[in-house]
């Protein structure tokens, strides 16, 4: 539990990055906190406002964290698990920067309590990597130059992944509708739609 994403295999080969360092410190503190709770006899009563132990499956790995009921899935992913690929945007379910997959379906992590994600499989941008390589949707966004500032891009990529899992060969109209929950203030929509089309081809070739 509480392993830093940047330690161990598949991490940061040139040593510890600045972000990795802070994340590792945070994860250490969390590990201690979790341990503390598990040693306290008795679970918190139903409806208590105090932190609750929750096990989240994220990108195929189980993470046990102590979460306050008011913490959103977005907050826990970023601030407790160090998965900063999921971005904080509007925090009111309008922009899509925080899009993650819940059991393969796109949802806004800012509009979901972390406790509600228990028992589901969460996939973030980090989970779309192909080992050390970019996954097909990421590769397609790069090839089609589907971003300018890049802030909305993680959410766009995860939304595209969800769309393509449900509909592997979408038409342009289906792409426009399927991506309509993600805003891009740089206005790169035309490139984003091309990238989703490209991603559908790359996935077909890769057989995934």
């Amino acid at each position: 539990m509480g392993h830093d994403q940047n330690d161990g295999k598949g991490g940061c080969p040139q040593g510890v990055s600045r972000r990795g360092f802070f994340t590792a410190v945070g994860a250490g503190a969390l590990g201690a906190a979790t341990l503390g709770r598990s040693q306290t006899p008795g679970a918190p009563p139903a409806g208590a406002a105090e932190p609750t132990k929750v096990t989240l499956r994220v990108n195929g790995r189980a993470h046990t964290v102590l979460a306050e009921p008011r913490w959103t899935l977005l907050f826990v992913l970023r601030e407790r698990l160090g998965l900063t690929g999921t971005k904080v945007g509007c925090e009111r379910g309008e922009c899509g920067a925080c899009t993650v997959l819940l059991d393969g379906t796109p949802v806004y992590a800012c509009m979901m309590l972390a406790l509600e994600a228990e028992g589901h499989e969460v996939t973030t941008l980090e989970g779309l990597m192909n080992g050390e390589e970019l996954g097909p949707v990421q590769q397609a966004f790069l090839q089609e130059d589907a971003f300018q500032c890049g802030y909305c891009t993680p959410g766009q990529i995860v939304a595209a992944e969800g769309l393509l899992r449900a509909n592997p060969q979408p038409t342009l109209e289906e792409i426009r509708a399927g991506m309509s929950g993600n805003l891009c203030r740089c206005g790169t929509y035309a490139h984003i739609f091309k990238a989703v089309k490209k991603a559908s081809e790359l996935k077909k070739v890769a057989g995934r």
Binding site: G93, G96, T99, T105, Y108, M111, A159, A177, G181
Partner: peptide
Amino acid sequence: AASPQLRNQ
């Protein structure tokens, strides 16, 4: 109603 993500939730 709403957006794809919100309709999923």
